[in-house]
Write a protein that binds this DNA or RNA. Sequence first.
DNA 1: CTGATGACTATAG
DNA 2: CCTATAGCCATCA
Length: 124
Amino acid sequence: MTHWKSRCQRIYSVVQAIPSGRVASYADVAALANLPRGARQVGRALRETPADLRLPWHRVLRADGRLAFAVGTEAAAEQTAQLQAEGIPCLRGRVDMARYRWQPELDELLWGPLAAAHDQSHPQ
DNA sequence: CTGATGACTATAG
DNA sequence: CCTATAGCCATCA
């Protein structure tokens, strides 16, 4: 089946999993939700997110780091504020993806269970 | 079925 | 930096 609703569930789960201080692109979220070419679907899902669900939608940006909303719009202002509130600089509607992009595997390596052993054998 | 529409993306110029 | 174009894919008139 894999209906729209279940896809939304997966999309929302992935977005919910983005750590504070990190961002992801629509394509990233789609890939992690098992929707390889579903970037547009991610956008649609976020657009239709129920209000009671408190989703960190502001951590989802375009692939090049620009906001999905035009600078000057209320949504862009809110998104910018939320990002900066968690330490992510957003200038001219843009975020440095190279620096703030969420990379689950890398995070696991650096901060996960393996990190301790890795740190011991590899200080600094 | 067809064409239009998006909180998208990659590539060119 | 920008715009233009062509893919993309679910949904809707």
